[in-house]
Amino acid sequence: MTDSSRLHASKPGAVTLVAPLLFTVVLFMVVLFAASCAKKAPPPPPPPPSTPIATAPPTTAGPVIASFTAEPSTIEPGQSSTLRWSISNATDMSIDHGIGAVQSQGMRQVFPRTSTSYALTVRGPGGMDSRSVTVEVSNAPPPPPTVRSPQISGNELLSQQGQDAYFDYDMSEIRSDGRDALTRDAALLKQILQQDPNFSVVVEGHCDERGSAEYNLALGDRRATAAKDFLVQLGVPADHLKTISYGKERPQCTDASENCWQKNRRAHLSAGQ
């Protein structure tokens, strides 16, 4: 037991720093990813009805624009739309806005900054034809959910600064180092609750692998409850704290060593729902 206390003084602190940092980075990437996904989300509208080639061709086969579409027809700034066309009986075919001469079948990506109408003009022995499509550029999308919103901020603060309380083997009494950790946690939780009065916290109880799973379920419950009671004594409102025992089902370290076992004998704070 003395060994474990000594080990605790340095090791677990280092680990609790690294893990939340990593988690934060992952969290941030998830935010970015989710946000960019959201931007691509607007469903493309159905393409405009194409003019059937078969409808009433001029007696002398004049040029016909069978189709000219932009897909998607609505984009956000920085995104692209694809123009597609199909033309027959034309010798001279061009699109404005600097695209210039084109072939009778083709496609072209365009990146308009603002809403733009593209005109396709074709000429041939039988006359001329023209058609235009408009690519709507929508207003700037709402900003992605930022890490400034209260819920995320609370999550982040907790995962960055929350500290685990460690326990002796088969014990659920809060050690003096655990008191220090939970005292800092209490201050942190009060700060988070000021920002986000709806924030809730799960106090997790964990055990090392050596006891039976059944006994450890009950022991982890005591550890979580002991940590919760301590936080409540320091003024954290009890109705924002919920306990859960993971027994030995969610170890953060899997080596068979006292160093690792100590890391797993802990109460850990995570954001609730």
């Binding site: 988690f23 969290l27 998830v30 935010v31 989710a34 959910p145 919103s149 819920q151 995320i152 999550n155 799960v202 919920k242 306990t243 859960i244 025992s245 954001a271 609730g272 729902q273």
Partner: peptide, 14 residues
């Protein structure tokens, strides 16, 4: 917002 966080979505009950 929380649904976008994998961790949050996996929260387990007692």
């Amino acid at each position: 917002n929380a649904a976008q966080f994998g961790k949050q979505a996996q929260n387990l009950g007692q």
